[in-house]
Amino acid sequence: MAMTREEFLKSSGLTVKVLELWIEQEWLAPEKTPSGLLFGEIDIARARLIGELQSGIGANEAGIDVILHLMDQLHGMRRALAELRREMGKAAV
């Protein structure tokens, strides 16, 4: 469910400074609403992934930029593939 900025900080364990930096770098893209930023569970999972890329795998800023960009393209392709499969299943009937 949707979270406010404070709830997201608590749940993700990020500091305000790190969160601002990651949003500026477009690593995180919370929904902008009149009353402030709104985060979802996908943002929590993404923040955790960025943390693991940084400390676990040792990727630097540029590396994380590239990984996230390619990863989102890969997921986009996987979705398109899944939908193609569904469409083709429909067409076969």
């Binding site: 979802g40 996908i42 960009h69 989102d72 986009g76």
Partner: peptide
Amino acid sequence: HPYADASGY
């Protein structure tokens, strides 16, 4: 979701 990216295809 906001991170969806179709540029790969």
